[in-house]
């Protein structure tokens, strides 16, 4: 087993202490402390939303909504230690609402949910070199394919574990489910995704 450097172990603990302080201060109405929390968590919340919406513009809007809601309801957060999971649960709910609204709009012909629309948005938002663009497109297509076989809950748990890199405890707190249920969903998700490793490996090498 790999020996870990004591300073490496200490670093996350210090960061966690900072977060705890910021949460307590933000709860007391300190906006600067809240902005520190934003700076710490915005990139990962944005990514988390992006993985699920695949639209940069929508991710920007939803991320703002998440932090605005977090600020408004920070007083309701009982234990500052679970701030990260609490923030993720807000984001998960926002994404669910987003998909529900999108499906509702598509029912009445008000919007498009097909892949083409997504890739157009992607092109506009990122616009890198052509080859990388294609590889990028392939990667997300493969991720989409791998996820297709997973149930909604398996997708959620798998993405939170490996894409958002949350611990099982954090996932349990985020989704407010039993820990053993989370583990079972994770195992099933991993089992289904592993079949796509071959294609994904090839794309990852290209990138």
């Amino acid at each position: 087993m790999k020996q870990t450097n004591p300073s490496e172990k200490q670093q996350p603990k210090l960061a966690e202490l900072h977060i705890l302080d910021w949460v307590i201060q933000a709860k007391a109405g300190d906006r600067t402390a809240f902005h520190q929390l934003v700076d710490r968590f915005q990139p990962e919340i944005f990514r988390m939303i992006y993985y699920r919406t695949r639209s940069q513009m929508d991710s920007e809007d939803l991320t703002q909504d998440v932090f605005l809601q977090a600020y408004k309801h920070l007083g309701r957060l009982q234990s500052p230690e679970v701030f990260k999971s609490w923030l993720y649960s807000i984001a998960v709910n926002k994404v669910r609402d987003y998909h529900r609204k999108k499906r509702f709009r598509s029912l009445f012909g008000g919007g498009s949910t097909d892949d083409e629309a997504f890739y157009e948005t992607e092109k506009m938002a990122v616009a890198p070199e052509a080859e990388q663009q294609v590889a990028r497109k392939d990667f997300w297509r493969q991720v989409g394919k791998a996820m297709e076989r997973l149930s909604v809950m398996e997708q959620e748990v798998f993405t939170l574990r490996f894409f958002d890199q949350l611990s099982i405890k954090e996932i349990t707190a985020t989704l407010k489910k039993n820990e053993s249920t989370i583990k079972t969903h994770l195992y099933r998700g991993m089992n289904k995704v592993k079949d796509h490793f071959g294609d994904m490996q090839r794309i990852m090498e290209e990138l």
């Binding site: 906006r31 809240f34 902005h35 934003v38 700076d39 915005q42 990139p43 944005f46 990514r47 992006y50 993985y51 940069q56 991710s59 920007e60 991320t63 703002q64 932090f67 605005l68 600020y71 938002a125 990122v126 990028r136 990667f139 997300w140 991720v143 490996f162 894409f163 958002d164 890199q165 995704v193 994904m200 990852m204 990138l207």
Partner: peptide
């Protein structure tokens, strides 16, 4: 796979401020 997704994702354009 997660790391690749992270690398291939855009970054938020501006920090959220109240």
């Amino acid at each position: 796979m997660g790391n690749m997704a992270r690398q291939l994702s855009p970054k938020p354009s501006s920090p959220f401020r109240l």
